[in-house]
Each structure stands twice: as structure tokens, then as C-alpha cells.
Amino acid sequence: MAQSTREIKRRIKGIGSTRQITKAMELVSSTKVRKRRIKLEKTRPYYNTVLKSIKEVLKNVNINHPLLQEREVKKSLYITINADRGLAGGYNSNINRLIDNKFKNNKDSISLITVGTKSRDFFKGRNYNILESFVGISEEPEFSDAREIGKLAMDLYIKGEIDEINVVFTEFVSTISYKPQIIKLLPSEKIKKEEGKPSAIVDFEPSPEEVLEYLIPKYVESSIYGALIEASTSEQSARRSAMSAATDNANEIIDELNMVYNRARQSAITMELSEIVAGAEALK
């Protein structure tokens, strides 16, 4: 019985050490979520301003820009945004399975640009066509990362190697709610010419063509950057929830083991007392 109590104490100590780790990770993720949410709120006005400006240009002039041309979709590009680390519940698998369930029987129709080792390793292991992989940026993405990804995607689109650009990410809804999303960047319904009268007086410098040449890449880049920030916020929120659940489970297991330990200790004491009483009776 003494051996049993020692074993139980070792288990309690081991689970207690794990609980300290999960609690620390929960606190770190909570801090990161707050920072990412602030950054997320700052990216949305920039994106909305760029989109509004593009619509204003298209409303006033008739321009056939290469990035706005629609064509028959034979080859699609998907930019998949995932994490570099695990311990985030179902966060990584949700994005991976969303694409795999859709294209596992038609892999030749898509190419991928993956963000995060979890996305790269998943699709590489299933023989998808990965054009480029970006790792080490999922937790703290910068606009320069979005610019690099966007340039690669737009070059492929202009060359005709792909017929549409999509971004796949996890949208942050709240600290306990986030959902996988697929958004088509090009050709986009959001930047089509709207019906309506042109503005009374509009003067584009140096020219409408050059203004649009500048704005459309900014739209793609800001969309990708927004998706990176949404995904980063969702990742930290998912990790916080997973670590919180792990900490709660550890507390429950420790409570149960403490009860088992107390019962075992009480049983051992009772047995020792019984042996003492029996020995005393035998001496009479």
C-alpha cells in the first residue's frame, strides 16, 4: 500500500507540472489575443479605404485592367493560412480538411501557397501542388509578408498560369468563436464596376490607369494581410481555449488523485492499527 501511495504522489506531481505549463501558455495566448485584436481593428479601415477608392475609379472611367479580367477557371490558386505550431485544438485541422474535402478527388485543378508548417506538411503529405511555402510568420505577420505572397499570386494570375486567386483562413468572430473562410480575391465581385452616375468632378493624377495600377495590388495585399491577422488572432484564441480546457482537466485529475491518495493512506493507517491491536491481543 505504501508503494501505491508513492505512485499516486508521483502522478499528482507530474500532472501538476503539466498544469503549470498549460496555465502559462493560456496566459501568454490571452495576452497575444488582446494585441492581435487591436491590430485587427487597425487593418480594416485601410482595406475599406482601398476598396472604396478602386470603386470610385471604376465608376468614373472605363478601364480593362489585367487583374480584373475574368476567364474560364481551369486552374485555381488557394492561399492557405495556418499555424506553425500545434496545441490549438482543431484550429489547424479545420482549414486543412476544408480544402482536402473539396479537392481530394480533383487535386490537379488547384495549386497552393501555404502559410504555416501545419498547412505545408499536411498538403505535402497528400501530394498537392505546393508552389511556395511561408513559415515562421503565422503568429506575428507583417505587411511585407502579405506583399510578398500577393506579388507571387498576382504574377501567376497575369501570366495566365492560374485563373483565380482564393485565400483560406480562419475568421475571428469572438474569443470563443472562429470559423474557416474561403474568399475569392481575383477576379472579385467586390471590385466590379458599380452602376450609377459618375462623380461630378473627378481628376486622377497622374492618370486613372496608373491609379488603378497602384490600388488593385494594394487591395490584394491588404486582403491577404487582413486574412493573416484574422488567422493569427484566431490561432491564439484557439490555443488559449485549448490550454484553458487542459488546465481544467488537470485540476479535475489532481482532485480525483488526491481523493484516491487520501483513501489509500487511510486504508494503510487502518491496516497498521489493526495489526497493532492484533499484536497486543496476542501478547495477553
Rank of each mutant, 00 (worst) to 15 (best):
S234T: 03
D163K: 03
V173L: 11
I216M: 06
Q3W: 11
S237Y: 00
I191H: 07
A245Q: 07
E194H: 03
F134A: 06
E195Q: 15
A153T: 09
S177N: 10
K190C: 00
N106E: 06
I269W: 11
E189D: 14
K74D: 11
E142T: 12
A238C: 08
V220R: 01
R265C: 09
R71S: 14
R240Q: 06
A280F: 15
L228S: 02
S234C: 01
R97W: 13
R6W: 03
R265N: 10
R36Q: 00
I201L: 09
I191E: 03
K190E: 10
Q20T: 14
E164H: 00
M1L: 11
R37S: 02
I95H: 08
K55P: 01
I162D: 04
E194I: 10
K59D: 04
L257Y: 03
H65R: 11
Y157F: 10
V202I: 13
S232K: 04
L228T: 05
G150E: 03
I12M: 05
P187G: 04
N62L: 08
P141D: 05
L77E: 06
N129C: 03
S244R: 10
K32F: 01
D145L: 15
A250V: 13
Y46R: 07
T175K: 10
L67P: 05
S237E: 00
E256F: 15
V260P: 00
L67C: 05
F134K: 12
A24E: 12
Q181E: 14
S133D: 08
R147S: 08
K190P: 00
I54R: 00
G16Q: 02
K197M: 14
G16Y: 01
T270S: 15
I182F: 07
Q181T: 08
N258G: 07
R19A: 10
